Amino acid sequence: MLNVLSILIGLVALVLAIPSAVPLLGWGNWLVLPFAVLGAGIGALSSKNHGRNFCLVVLLIAAIRLSIGGGII
């Protein structure tokens, strides 16, 4: 059950991260990072790794996009 919840949180984070890839909307990644960390934490409590790994990938994508924009853009 925790794995499914982690995947759902990761999907919400991914849906928020997609528009944040557009220039001048990079600030949205600051909203994505806590969701992805929360999902990864819940996924770590699960017996399976799929949800945790998915949230970590979303976290990595958001962090890279945020670092490219200098943390703001």
Rank of each mutant, 00 (worst) to 15 (best):
S6G: 15
L5F: 07
I73R: 12
L56F: 06
I73W: 14
S6V: 07
H50P: 02
V4W: 07
L25H: 10
A21S: 15
G41I: 09
V58C: 02
L16T: 08
V22R: 11
I42G: 04
V15M: 08
H50I: 10
L25F: 15
G43Q: 04
I7W: 02
L2D: 15
L66H: 00
S67M: 07
K48Y: 10
L2G: 13
G70H: 05
F35I: 11
P23V: 05
N29Y: 04
L8I: 12
V12P: 01
F54C: 03
G43R: 07
S67Q: 03
F54A: 12
V15Y: 03
L5Q: 12
P34M: 09
I7H: 04
L8C: 06
N29V: 03
L2R: 13
N49A: 13
I72P: 00
A36H: 05
A40R: 05
V58I: 14
W30R: 02
C55E: 04
A40F: 01
L14I: 02
I18Y: 06
I18T: 13
A62K: 06
V57M: 11
L8V: 11
A17P: 00
A44R: 09
S47N: 13
L25N: 12
P19C: 12
A40V: 00
G69D: 03
L14T: 04
L24Q: 11
L33G: 02
